[in-house]
Amino acid sequence: MNKIIVLTLLFVIQLNHCNSQSIYLKASGGFNIPANTQQSPEYFSFRLYFPNDVMYKVNLSNSGFSIAEGINFHGAVGYNLNKLLSLELGISYSANTKKEFEASPKLEYALNGKTNWDYKSYSLIPSILIGQSFNNSAISINIFSGIGFSNLKVKASIEDYYNNYSFDKAISFSYGYGIEYLYRLTAKIQIYISAGLNNMFYTPRHAELVSSSDPLNISTVYQREIDYVTEIKDLRLGNYYGDQQYLENPEVRLQETLKLNCIYSGIGIKYTLLKNEKK
């Protein structure tokens, strides 16, 4: 930890001694639209329990699923290595705005429900920019990758029945590339627009049922919690209906990765830190 602090301080001191126009700050906001859709991940089964051990499984599957549509906010500190190359370290936040997905295609002889997905992602994004200038404007190609964590909540419902799941803050990864067009307003301030492709990956490891319309649904650990694993091999199941030893452990399912492929666009402002010129 101390090493990180020392290295950070050294980096800051180094930046202070850099050429005056080398450091800049950026802030932008924008919108993501999906570049692709996928089959919705089946993170849980939504079952309705009725008296006399009657149970129905609700179809939630959606073949045109994507929660990549949403907003993004990005802030970064950058350093111009030379006229061509810059390095940036950014912090990014994105959240989905398209949340609700009905089962599609609908199954004829089944109950068809819907899901509501609430996804938020926070990422640290190092990137490299290759650019060229023209009079008052400049264009850069931006290549980046990111690491962060994501929050996911999913609500499955049909009519008045619902199950509300909260997923763990698992590490998420991203990579992408894009293009930026900058226009100089003053010596210090530029505005820019950016667009490109971003790919985010989130694989939850654990989920918990946090609320349900049916109190029966939260009676055992098996019904409340889900562990996602990479492999299911020789997993001991309950020997009989109501096997308490089995029901006091979380349900085990295979991991599924949520892939958010999006076309991002944004508008932002770049502030160049100027200092006294070296004589």
Binding site: E231, I232, K233, D234, L235, R236, L237, G238, N239, L254
Partner: peptide
């Protein structure tokens, strides 16, 4: 990803 589930004597492999 296609899942094939085998349960033999209450032991599951996917």
């Amino acid at each position: 990803k296609m899942q094939s589930v085998e349960v033999v004597d209450f032991v599951q492999t996917v």
